[in-house]
């Protein structure tokens, strides 16, 4: 009997396993702990019974473009036929004999409820290209390879990114001296007119709940709205931060580009670089920054063509003398 001893290793190279260094991003580390092998593995399995010939296994692997096939009957895993086993059978002239005779039998398997971090360590330790996955009842339920892991991590990271991008930072309380303390951050996307104004509206609602004077609320809402629209219309996307502390409201609109060539000109009434279709929506009248400056007690703008713009609007909500 020429049964192979173990799964074929993949080419060995210098590597560091994900999760074994302090430099891996926390999001990634959390992901590989949270994800289970069953979340990542391929469960739509192609298998052969023990009495299938090695040639049948080879044909199946060719058709399905896979590099190994589990030998399984009624959920029980008996072994694995790999490309190495096929080559060995071709050389030895045993390609017409059964998989049961020539399959790899000494297998390292993973369990489906193991965390992905565990699987990654196995890949590193054994240098195998894939591992069969069994459940608690020792039934074969899947197979996992590097490609499955890469695909799962990409999907999860994309979702995580969307979640982080869409999340609004929120902190409420007092600033230690008994004054109101609020902090909100709103990510604003370029040309997202569907949601334009929502951040300003939320700010207004919070201020109404806190029962601030209507005139102050309106000034803050005007500044927030204009800066939100500016991010939406003119920037490549950015963040609108709003903070109330020490008796004043501070709105900061920050973006990473494209920047303003002539800041002084941009702050003039009527100055606008908006195109026709933006004007047709009622924006781009060149009044935005003018409005912000008019309602603000302190106003500041910093910008550089080719880099980002930061606009700050401060409005006092408590009498400074008090």
């Amino acid at each position: 009997m020429s049964t192979s001893d173990s799964q074929p290793p993949i080419a060995s190279e210098e590597r560091t396993t994900l999760g074994e260094t302090d430099n891996d991003p926390i999001v990634l580390l959390e992901l590989i702990q949270r994800l289970k092998v069953r979340d990542v593995m391929t469960s739509n399995l192609v298998t052969v019974p023990r009495d299938a010939t090695m040639q049948q296994a080879q044909e199946l692997m060719r058709q399905k473009k896979i590099s190994s096939v589990p030998v399984e009957e009624k959920g029980r895993l008996f072994g694995l036929v790999s490309i190495d086993d096929i080559i060995r059978a071709l050389v030895a002239g045993t390609i017409h004999e059964s998989c049961g005779r020539h399959m790899t039998t000494k297998l390292v398997v993973l369990e489906d409820d193991m965390p992905l971090s565990f699987a990654l360590r196995y890949f590193d330790r054994y240098h195998y290209g894939r591992f069969p996955v069994i459940n608690r009842d020792r039934q074969l339920v899947g197979i996992i390879c590097h490609r499955d892991i890469n695909r799962a991590l990409l999907v999860e990271l994309t979702q995580e990114l969307h979640r982080l991008e869409g999340a609004s930072l929120q902190k409420d309380g007092d600033d230690g001296s008994g004054s109101l303390y609020l902090l909100r951050e709103f990510p604003i996307c370029k040309y997202d007119f569907e949601n334009a104004g929502k951040a300003a509206n939320q700010i207004k609602q919070v201020l109404q709940e806190k029962k601030l004077p209507p005139k102050i609320i309106r000034r803050i809402a005007v500044a927030a709205y204009e800066l939100e629209i500016n991010l939406c219309v003119h920037s490549d996307g950015g963040v609108l931060s709003w903070q109330i502390s020490n008796g004043r409201s501070e709105i900061v609109a920050r973006d990473a580009g494209p920047g303003i060539e002539d800041v002084e000109w941009a702050c003039r009434d009527g100055a606008s670089t908006a195109n026709e279709w933006i004007r047709s929506l009622g924006f781009g009248a060149g009044m935005g920054l003018v409005n912000v400056r008019r309602v603000s007690d302190e106003f500041d703008i910093k910008s550089k063509k080719g880099s980002g713009t930061t606009v700050k609007s401060i409005i006092y909500i408590e009498d400074k003398a008090s």
């Binding site: 007119f193 569907e194 334009a196 104004g197 929502k198 300003a200 509206n201 209507p214 309106r218 005007v222 709205y225 204009e226 629209i229 929506l281 009622g282 924006f283 009248a285 009044m287 935005g288 409005n291 008019r294």
Partner: peptide, 25 residues
């Protein structure tokens, strides 16, 4: 809309051609 933001009095109806969500905002 910036003009509306700047000058529309509280409690006034807005007479406009702007038939989109931003006018509502």
């Amino acid at each position: 809309l910036s003009d509306v933001m700047a000058h529309c009095p509280d409690g006034a109806v807005l007479i406009t051609v702007q038939n989109h969500t931003n006018s509502v905002a």
